[in-house]
Amino acid sequence: MLGLEYFKFADVWSPVFLAVMLLITAGYLVLTGPLNEKFGQGKPVSAGKKVLFVLGMGVLYMAQGGPVELLGHMMFSFHMISMALSYLVAPPLLMLGLPEWIWRGISSFLGKGPLRRLKFLTHPVVAAVVFNGLFSFYHLPVVHDYVMLHFGIHRLYYIVLFIAAVLMWWTLVKPLPAHGDAQGLKKMGFIFLNMVLLTPACGLIIFAPETLYATYSDPVIWSKAMGYCIPGDTSMLLDRFGGPEFFGYLEPRIDQQVGGILMKFIQEIIFASMLAYVFFQWYRQENREEEDEQLPDDLKLNQI
């Protein structure tokens, strides 16, 4: 399907990466299960949190080590799906899945070392600008093609981008309520800011009059970039398939436009849903406070 049948099992499913993800998931289940009473002060971790974390790990694996990762090296539209899953879907699921005591341990560890000087990165505006700036910078054609061909930088950039995504989601997810002070209109403004900041990069991709990325249009560069997913000499891909167009269900420029639209559409769906949720929460809170103010003093005392 979509050309995956031409590749080996190891190329499609990345067994080493899968093993690492399974080990991390198993470690999480042990910490939140048998060892939770020891480290979590007896407060049980809900099944819902565990499901969210496991789901987040599954999404991250599919995007960075499963079929979506391989397809993302052959079609730009799948590359954008991989990016959306990796940085807009997986982080909040993982963050919501971690119990508070784990977050407090992480916060305490980071607060004692030199990294405490980077606390300013958790500021909502800074986090939004950093994440969207890194994402947009990565999709400049010259930067994207360079990163795709240099695998060490590729891995490092993706890790940094994931950390930036976690910082960006921090204000919305609030793993530690005491550390998150954005409420109501401020939080809605933060969501809107994120929606706006990603628009220029997506617009550049969607409305470009020609293909921007040699990785998806130049067969030689494409074959070299495929070395990230396939071990050994990837020049044989040229003899076997000719280039990425063998797998493309769309003409390269159209595929590029579809990728930009998919990224913006997924982002809009996620953040619009968050915006609606925050608005109704804020609206209910405001109405509750107004009702409390209108209550007679004797009723207020009775409520207390």
Rank of each mutant, 00 (worst) to 15 (best):
V20T: 15
D145A: 12
G56S: 13
P92R: 10
P124E: 02
F109Y: 12
G56L: 07
S107D: 10
G42Y: 04
I102P: 01
H73I: 06
F135H: 12
A63K: 10
V126H: 05
G152L: 13
L156C: 10
L35H: 13
T122K: 11
L35F: 14
H139A: 11
H139M: 03
P44G: 10
G27E: 14
Y146F: 15
L18M: 15
K112C: 03
S46Y: 05
A26N: 11
V142Y: 13
K119D: 06
K43Q: 05
G42D: 07
M80R: 06
D145G: 05
L94H: 01
V129N: 00
Y146L: 09
V54R: 00
L85E: 00
F78W: 15
M21E: 11
V125H: 06
W103Q: 01
L134P: 12
G105D: 07
K112S: 05
D145T: 06
V45Q: 03
V68K: 00
S46H: 00
M83N: 01
G65L: 03
R116Y: 02
W101Y: 08
M62V: 12
F131T: 00
V130R: 06
Q64R: 11
Q64P: 03
H73R: 09
R104K: 11
M21H: 13
S46M: 05
M75Y: 02
G27Y: 02
P34R: 14
K49W: 03
S77G: 01
L18F: 15
G133R: 07
E69S: 11
Y28P: 06
P44D: 07
T25N: 04
A90R: 04
L121C: 06
V30R: 10
F131Q: 04
A19R: 09
H154Y: 14
L96K: 02
F76D: 08
S82G: 15
G152T: 13
F17I: 10
E69R: 15
L121G: 13
A19I: 03
L115E: 01
Y61L: 08
E37Y: 10
M95P: 08
G42P: 07
A47G: 08
H154R: 14
V20S: 13
L149A: 07
I24L: 12
L98Q: 00
G40N: 05
D145Y: 03
L93N: 10
I24E: 04
G105F: 04
V142M: 13
G111P: 02
G113A: 12
F53V: 04
P34N: 11
P99C: 06
D145L: 03
H150E: 09
L35R: 15
M74W: 09
L149Q: 14
F137S: 08
L115F: 13
Q41K: 08
V68P: 07
A47Y: 11
F78K: 03
S136C: 05
L110I: 12
F151I: 05
